[in-house]
């Protein structure tokens, strides 16, 4: 199959945590769309975001750069950005780049949401 799916971003709110699901591919073309979406969410005070990557097929460094500025902005406003359910290939490049050292990563969305209550 040709793997490419349009980038789609949706959100749900559970208590004080916003869960953002990202579907498809993030590259230099689509990264600005993700950046804008996250920037809007982070405008709220104490933005606690879980980004669910279960349906993220692909990201390049463009996606990592977006996350880096999102986590920076969220922490500056007293919140955080945490990641959940990454596919193996995506998880590998997070590790490779050292992102695991600065971002909290959880195997699924439930645990990522629960981490904010702790």
């Amino acid at each position: 199959m040709s793997s490419r799916r349009q980038l789609q971003i949706t959100k749900v709110k559970i208590n004080a945590v916003t869960i953002i699901s990202v579907t498809g591919s993030v590259d230099a073309l689509t990264a600005p769309m993700l950046a804008e979406y996250l920037a809007r969410e982070i405008q709220n005070p104490n933005p606690n975001l879980v980004i669910d990557f279960a349906e993220l097929d692909y990201t390049s460094s463009a996606g990592l750069r977006v996350l880096l500025s999102a986590v920076k902005a969220a922490r500056a406003r007293g919140g955080d950005v945490r990641l959940a359910a990454m596919q193996t290939n995506v998880a590998k490049i997070f590790e490779m780049s050292g992102f695991n050292a600065i971002l909290k990563v959880y195997p699924d969305r439930a645990r990522a949401v629960a981490s904010f209550a702790a």
Binding site: R4, S25, A28, L29
Partner: peptide
């Protein structure tokens, strides 16, 4: 940039 997805699909 619009070509990136096409190129990745080709490799895929």
């Amino acid at each position: 940039l619009e070509s990136l997805g096409v190129l990745r699909d080709f490799i895929h």
